[in-house]
Every structure is written in structure tokens, then in C-alpha cells.
Simulated assay, not measured.
Amino acid sequence: MSYTIEDLFIGKIARMQRIFTDEEVKVCEKLTRDNSPVYNVEDDIWKHHYHQPIVPGLLAEGLINQVISEKLPGVACVLLQKELIFYLPVYVGDIITAELEIIDINMERNWVTQKVACFNQNGSEVIKGQVVVVILTNQN
């Protein structure tokens, strides 16, 4: 669904779920050139802190961007600001649910501020924060 800024209201919520795969991690590493050994099953460095390799933060953030672009607001918009805290690692195979809730709307600037909360399949919060987007209009 696609919304105009007039359709939005404080408290509106959208959610999406995703399972991150090893193939996605490899593509992310290739595109970003982030070759940290904590993402690679063949490296041992991650074993000191995690029970398996982790999903890159940028890839996990992709689910948040997907909620913004496909559901809330679901229209052409540009990310202006993001503040995220990664409480727990996201692992390959985790089922992550991203929930975004509108907490402020600035009609004058076309800005929408949303609270972000991401949970794994166990109900543990893995990412928390907020984003601000500007909704683009056809007006000059």
C-alpha cells in the first residue's frame, strides 16, 4: 500500500519479516567490500563472541528500508536520518520481524519520524532505533 503524508497518522504501524541467508551475506560482502571474518563460516574469529557467523548490520538494516519503501510510507521517500542500536546479533537463518511505528509527522517539511524495533524468532529485540524520511511529492 502507498500513502500520502495526509493519509499517515501517529501510531500507524507496519511490519515485515525476513529470513537472512548465507547467500545474501556473501552478496552483501561483495557489494559493500566489507569482508569482516565475523561473517564467514570458514574463519574462527567469530567463535570467540558468537555461536555462528553474524549477518552484516547493513544487510539487517535492509529489512527496515524494505518496510519504509513497500509499506510505511510506501511511496517515494528519502532517508534523512537513522539511529540504530544493535542489541543482539542477527544470524543466518534467523527470522527477523521489523516493526516501524510513526511517532511524528512534520507536514511543513514532509518529514515522517518512525520508531524502529526488530525482533528475532525468539521474541528478543535485536535492533532498536528511529528513522526520519522525507516524502517526495510531485510538486515543484
Rank of each mutant, 00 (worst) to 15 (best):
I64S: 05
C28P: 03
Y91A: 07
G57Y: 15
H49F: 12
P56A: 12
E99M: 10
Y87K: 15
L84C: 09
K47V: 05
P53F: 05
D43I: 00
P73H: 06
D104L: 05
P53T: 03
V78L: 14
K26L: 14
N106F: 11
L88Y: 01
V92S: 03
P37G: 08
S36Y: 02
I64T: 09
L84M: 15
V92M: 13
P89Q: 08
L80Q: 14
L72C: 13
V41T: 03
I68L: 15
E61D: 15
E24Y: 06
V67N: 09
K71W: 01
H48A: 15
I105Q: 07
R33A: 14
R109W: 03
L80F: 06
Y87W: 07
T97D: 02
D44T: 14
K82D: 05
L79Y: 06
Y87Q: 14
I105M: 07
P53W: 04
L63A: 07
E101I: 10
I45V: 14
K82F: 04
I54K: 05
V27Y: 12
Q52V: 01
G93Y: 05
A60V: 11
E83R: 06
V38I: 08
I96A: 11
I102R: 00
K71I: 02
L100I: 05
I85L: 14
L59H: 04
H48M: 10
L31Q: 10
C77F: 00
I85F: 10
D34F: 10
Y39A: 05
I68D: 12
C28Q: 13
C77N: 09
K82Y: 10
L79C: 01
L72Q: 12
R33W: 02
V67L: 12
H48W: 00
M107A: 10
T97F: 03
E29F: 04
L88T: 02
P73I: 01
N110Y: 14
W46N: 01
A98P: 11
V25T: 04
V41W: 14
V75Q: 00
N35Y: 09
I95L: 15
Y50T: 04
R109C: 03
E42S: 15
G93R: 09
L58C: 07
P56E: 12
N40Y: 04
E70C: 13
N106A: 05
D44K: 13
V38D: 02
I54C: 01
Y87A: 10
I96V: 15
F86K: 00
K26N: 10
N35L: 03
D34E: 10
L88C: 03
A76I: 06
K26C: 09
G57E: 13
L79E: 04
E24K: 02
D34A: 11
G74C: 08
P37E: 04
P37K: 02
L63T: 01
N40H: 06
K71Q: 15
N106Q: 07
D34S: 07
